[in-house]
Structures are given as structure tokens and as C-alpha cells.
Design a binder for these strands. Structure first.
Lengths: 127, 127
DNA sequence: CCATTATATGCCTTGACAAGTATATGCTCT
DNA sequence: AGAGCATATACTTGTCAAGGCATATAATGG
């Protein structure tokens, strides 16, 4: 199972995490609010627990599950580099002329603000 | 295949995305840099393309692949609520760092003090 | 045209995993 | 102790995706 990304690939697990973000819940509460069978909930909780996404405390016959931040922070950390990418991505579509070209630096140009869906001469097939 | 989360669950696909964040690449470049067989690369690129993570343009016999931001932004958006969660959790630590906003309005805004997670009589076992 | 390079696709096998159902474990109260 | 509730686990089954390998498509230079 391993990586945090595989854990959150499952929709029901994401739903459980989303539910837990507001407050801790018992298994039964999760079961009712998400309308999924109890064994399913327990199994997903097991996966989440073993991956460090949640932890549980015993409250009489119930078990209260709550979020732990670390694994999702790890995902967040991975995403960080892409945030840098897409903020620098105002019009990278047209800058595709430079494909691995020489390090001869062109003139420093302040960033222009060109907007709009400017797809011209697009031989590309994104299909 | 559907959700962006399932797409990035695959380690090789994450590697490809990470590689593309610096600049666009041809299939052959990806193949060499990641040391994976060419059909594997092509197949993962197909998945990524159909999910909107990348797009390609034709350059002679090559195809140049580059990142598209939307799907990862979607993931990022999902993570947002959890960021709120763990900044409320690491209160003392994050208090400074999260304070980069709010230019001049340091007026005494009576923000309601939110309760943390209420751990009472913690018999807990996170086993 | 032919050979070569670059990329895509088809088929097959294998393994992972989620859901369903049934049952086990554990706690509480009378 | 026994009934009842809450949660966990075992076992089975169906689905689906990833990798390996072979081959197809496509563009290039000679």
C-alpha cells in the first residue's frame, strides 16, 4: 500500500477524511453519515490508521477516530513544486519556442501580461 | 480512471510529472531519464494526457509533452480544507508563519476563538 | 522506396484491492 | 452470566490496472 497517494486515491477514504476534518467521529457516525456498510468503514479506517492518516481512542464500546496531519502534509509538500509551476505559467503556451536551446541569455524582459485563449498555429494534438 | 487522485497514485506517473515541471520533454528523454521502457512511458503519458495533466505537440517525429495545471490544482483545492485543519492544530507554530497576509487592517478584529480537538480522558490506542 | 528512428497500441498475464457476507471480539448493563 | 450494541476480521469473488513483449504507425534522411 505504501504511499499516501495511493491511500487517498480511494473515494470513500477521501470522504472519511473530509468528514473527520470538522471533528472526530465514531465508526457508527461515519457509517451513517456516509451511508456505507460498517465493514467497509472499518476496513478503510484500518488502512487510514496504518498509513498514519487517522488515530483512534477508545470510548467505551466506541472508537473515536480523528485526523492526523502528517501524511496529507506530505502530499501537500509534493504539490508545492507544481504551485510554483502554475504561478509562473501565465503564458507558457507560447514560450514553447525555447526547447532546450542554448544558454545564450536573451534580454531580460519584464513579464508581460497577455491574456486570453490564444491558441494559434497549433499543430499540437492534445487528444 | 476518472479522478485526478487515481492518476497521481502511480509512482511512475508522479515521476513523469515531476520531470515535466522543469520543462517539456520528448518521450525518449523521459524514457532515458527515468529509465523505464518506452511502452510504459507512452502508456502513462496517454493516461496523463486523457486526464488533462499533460498535453503534447508534434515536433518532427517526436512528441513534446508538457504540463497542464488544472488537474493538480484540483487536488490542491481538495487539500485546502486540510491545510486549515492542521494550521489550527499546530497553533503556536503556525501562528507566525500563517500571518503573511492582512496588510494594514490590524484592527482588533474579534475573531472567535475556535476550540481545538477536545481530548478528554484519553485512553487512546492508536495501534 | 528503404532503412532508421520515434512513438503508439494490442494482447496477455499477474497481482492488488474493494465490496459483500458472515462471523468473531469486546464492552456495557441488568 | 447473558443479551445487545459497536467494531473488527476472515474469506471469497469480481474488477481493473500495470508491465512485458511484440508489432503497428509515422516521420526522416539517403
Amino acid at each position: 500500500m505504501e504511499s499516501a497517494f495511493e491511500i487517498i486515491a480511494e473515494p470513500n477514504r477521501r470522504a472519511i477524511l473530509t468528514l473527520l476534518v470538522s471533528s472526530q467521529r465514531s465508526v457508527g457516525e461515519i457509517e451513517r453519515q456516509l451511508r456505507m456498510p460498517q465493514p467497509t468503514v472499518s476496513k478503510h479506517l484500518r488502512v487510514l490508521r496504518e498509513a498514519g492518516f487517522v488515530e483512534s481512542t477508545v470510548d467505551a464500546q466506541r472508537r473515536l477516530y480523528r485526523l492526523k496531519p502528517e501524511p496529507l502534509q506530505e502530499v501537500d509538500a509534493w504539490l508545492a513544486r507544481f504551485r510554483r509551476f502554475w504561478s509562473a505559467h501565465l503564458d507558457a503556451l507560447e514560450r514553447h519556442l525555447g526547447r532546450m536551446d542554448q544558454p545564450a541569455s536573451t534580454k531580460r524582459n519584464a513579464r508581460k501580461r497577455r491574456r486570453g485563449p490564444n491558441r494559434k498555429r497549433d499543430k499540437g494534438e492534445t487528444k
